[in-house]
């Protein structure tokens, strides 16, 4: 979807609602994406009661809440960096935007790295994706989120690259704003996942 919303009918078109097509597309896509994550998280919640007794390979044995909290903080900071980048552009500071968006992407990569580190650790302890229902639900749910973060990082770096070629002027800041909708959404979804997978105690 990343590319799909960058084409066609951008600036200047008069629309019924006053919201541009691209932005409306992103909003409706996010509504749909809510249901993707909703389905996954719902599944996780239904399986949750089965996860308490998994012979040393359950969430109570493996989840490292302090580390995940740190990663959550990193992701939240990336959203902050993004907001600063967008406001730089809106004030006409393209270089500032590039710096902040690169920071955002790097924080995103740091998050992906940290999460991958956790994957490796779990795998090392013996939790494969098919080991038990926790392995299955945990890896697939967070993996699906990781794919979203990855797409976001590529998108942000794409904007930075375009900006170097002068193709993201102040007048087209909506393009960055739309990427931001996506980035913040992915961030918020992580908060939900973090809450339901990590924080709520398993009994």
């Amino acid at each position: 979807m990343a590319a799909a919303d960058q084409h066609s009918g951008h600036e200047g078109h008069h629309t019924t609602t006053g919201i541009s097509h691209n932005k409306l597309l992103m909003w409706s896509f996010l509504a749909s994406d809510c249901m993707f994550f909703g389905s996954l998280i719902m599944m996780y919640m239904v399986y949750r009661p089965e996860m308490t007794d998994l012979g040393g390979l359950g969430p109570n044995d493996l989840l490292d809440i302090p580390f995940s909290s740190l990663m959550t903080f990193v992701l939240l900071m990336s959203s902050l960096a993004f907001v600063l980048g967008l406001s730089s552009l809106q004030r006409g500071n393209e270089a500032g935007m590039r710096i902040w968006l690169t920071t955002t992407a790097l924080l995103g990569l740091l998050f992906l790295g940290g999460e991958s580190f956790e994957y490796m650790k779990f795998y090392g302890e013996g939790l494969s994706i098919g080991e038990n229902i926790f392995g299955t639900a945990y890896f697939v749910t967070t993996g699906f989120h990781k794919i979203h973060v990855g797409i976001g990082v590529i998108w942000l770096l794409g904007i930075v690259a375009m900006s170097y070629r002068g193709r993201v002027p102040k007048e087209r800041s909506e393009m960055v704003e739309i990427a931001g909708l996506y980035w913040h959404f992915v961030d918020i979804v992580w908060i939900v996942i973090f809450t339901f997978i990590f924080l709520v105690p398993y009994r």
């Binding site: 599944m43 239904v46 399986y47 994706i129 098919g130 038990n132 229902i133 392995g135 299955t136």
Partner: peptide, 15 residues
């Protein structure tokens, strides 16, 4: 890929 979402033993058939 060998996950167990819908296995009767580990997951849930009805899911």
């Amino acid at each position: 890929f060998d996950t167990v979402f819908f296995s009767a033993a580990d997951g849930s058939v009805v899911m």
